[in-house]
């Protein structure tokens, strides 16, 4: 696969947990400033791909490239300045004993960047959180507010790539709409590249023009959101997921 014009390239990625092969040869490429969606059911390996891309799992083989450069097994700090991740569960992704202020300062302190006092109020503004939450603890915030904090934390070091692992599936639908809108605004303003994993076809199709469908550790189909909406699917699994999703849309 030609990696020169693609910001992120995943080439024949295989991930094993012990004897189980969770991901068997996944390849895709994402251009700068676009959003790539991965849909699938639980156990399809979609989150595993994302975590390996983030450097959270070192047991993989194949190739992963960022901006044409092959990623090492153990990621460098420079990588984390370019690639960040937002997790599914906003209740589990913030340290329970640390204030929002501490959570947002952590990337700046850990990477020796500094300037937290100016950066934190700005980061809160960007995700439309009131300054009043700055010194609260996570348990004092709602799920949607916590997910905004997680997004602010991921963006505070100005990365180019955001990996989104089911970022709205733990949220109420009204909050989901707000967070999805926030994500599309941020992408436009900062020319971010997204890779978003979700089980919800409508959510992925809303944010991502290109979608890979995973089943049993493989990408069974790659199609545009437009083709998915129009029902131009080639793999039966995609068709089944689409049917289940549209069935409920008609009142």
């Amino acid at each position: 696969m030609d990696g020169r014009f693609q910001l992120i390239v995943v080439d024949n990625l295989v991930i094993r947990f012990g004897r189980v092969e969770a991901v068997s040869g996944v390849s895709f490429a994402v251009a700068r400033g676009t959003a790539w969606g991965i849909v699938g059911e639980s156990g399809s390996g979609k989150s595993t791909v994302l975590r390996a891309l983030a450097g959270l799992n070192e047991n993989w083989s194949g190739r992963m490239l960022l901006d044409g450069e092959e990623l090492p097994r153990r990621r460098t700090r420079a990588f984390f300045r370019r690639v960040q991740m937002v997790f599914q569960d906003p209740y589990g992704s913030l340290h329970p004993r640390q204030t929002i202020d501490r959570a947002l300062a952590e990337p700046l302190v850990a990477q020796g960047i500094g300037g937290a006092d100016a950066a934190i109020p700005r980061a809160l503004d960007e995700v439309a959180l009131p300054q009043a939450v700055r010194f609260r603890y996570p348990h004092q915030l709602s799920g949607g507010q916590r997910q905004r904090v997680a997004i602010a934390r991921a963006l505070i070091t100005s990365p180019e790539v955001l990996l989104l692992d089911e970022p709205t599936s733990a949220l109420d639908v009204s909050v989901q709409a707000e967070v999805l809108n926030l994500l599309s605004d941020l992408q436009r303003e900062r020319n971010l590249t997204y890779i978003m994993v979700s089980h919800n076809l409508a959510v992925v199709a809303h944010l991502c023009p290109m979608i890979a469908v995973m089943q049993g550790g493989r990408v069974v189909e790659t199609l545009s959101a437009e083709a998915l909406r129009a029902g131009r699917t080639t793999h039966p699994h995609t068709a089944e997921l689409r049917a289940l999703s549209t069935e409920l849309e008609e009142p």
Binding site: R81, M85, F87, E106, A110
Partner: peptide, 26 residues
């Protein structure tokens, strides 16, 4: 293996920092 420790790793924190600053207080 919790997400907030994973997030701290992604923040670029070293192993020592994660143990001393994030795990020990908990």
């Amino acid at each position: 293996n919790s997400d907030f420790i994973a997030a701290t790793r992604l923040a670029g924190a070293s192993r020592t920092r994660i143990i001393l600053v994030h795990i020990i207080p908990l």
